[in-house]
Amino acid sequence: MGTLVGHVAPGFGFFIIGLWHLLNHIKNHAINPKSYTSLPWFPTSKIRYLELILIMAGCTMSIAMELFIGPDRHQPLDRDGTIPSNHLHNFEHSSISITLFMYAAFSIVLDKIAPPAQYGLTHLLGSIAFGQQLLLFHLHSTDHMGVEGQYHWLLQIAIFISLVTTLLDINYPKSFLNSFARSVSIMFQGVWLMVMGFMLWTPQFIAKGCFMNLEEGHKVVRCHGEKALERAKSLVNIQFSWYFVGVTIFSLSLYLIMIKLYSKKVEYQSLKNFEEQEEDNEDDVEAQKKRKLEEPRSTFLQMGKSFAPMDMESS
Score class of each variant (00 low, 15 high):
63 I>V: 11
291 R>S: 15
247 V>M: 10
276 E>V: 10
159 I>G: 00
47 I>S: 13
203 P>Q: 01
177 L>F: 11
145 M>E: 15
53 I>E: 04
43 P>K: 02
100 L>R: 07
238 I>S: 08
301 L>V: 07
89 H>P: 08
114 A>P: 06
204 Q>S: 12
73 R>G: 08
313 E>F: 08
100 L>H: 10
182 R>E: 04
100 L>T: 03
298 S>N: 13
191 V>K: 08
2 G>E: 10
109 V>I: 15
126 G>F: 00
231 R>T: 15
293 L>Q: 10
260 K>L: 15
127 S>V: 00
30 A>P: 05
224 H>G: 12
283 D>T: 14
210 C>I: 02
4 L>T: 13
236 V>W: 01
108 I>P: 08
223 C>L: 01
237 N>E: 10
143 D>E: 03
78 D>H: 09
259 I>W: 07
252 L>Y: 15
97 S>Q: 05
12 F>Y: 03
123 H>N: 13
242 W>P: 07
257 I>N: 09
233 K>G: 05
161 I>K: 06
125 L>C: 07
112 K>I: 15
279 E>N: 14
136 L>A: 02
314 S>R: 14
178 N>W: 03
8 V>I: 01
251 S>P: 06
91 F>Q: 01
212 M>N: 10
133 Q>V: 03
293 L>F: 05
273 N>V: 05
292 K>Y: 11
261 L>P: 04
99 T>E: 13
116 P>G: 07
192 W>F: 10
69 I>Y: 14
172 Y>G: 08
136 L>W: 06
105 A>Q: 10
212 M>K: 11
24 N>I: 01
78 D>W: 14
274 F>C: 11
14 F>H: 09
24 N>D: 00
170 I>S: 02
115 P>H: 04
177 L>Q: 14
190 G>W: 10
209 G>I: 00
77 L>T: 02
4 L>Q: 15
241 S>F: 10
257 I>T: 12
211 F>D: 07
313 E>V: 14
175 S>E: 03
261 L>D: 13
71 P>K: 06
46 K>P: 07
263 S>Q: 06
3 T>F: 03
2 G>K: 10
254 L>E: 01
75 Q>E: 05
107 S>I: 04
190 G>C: 12
211 F>E: 14
285 V>R: 13
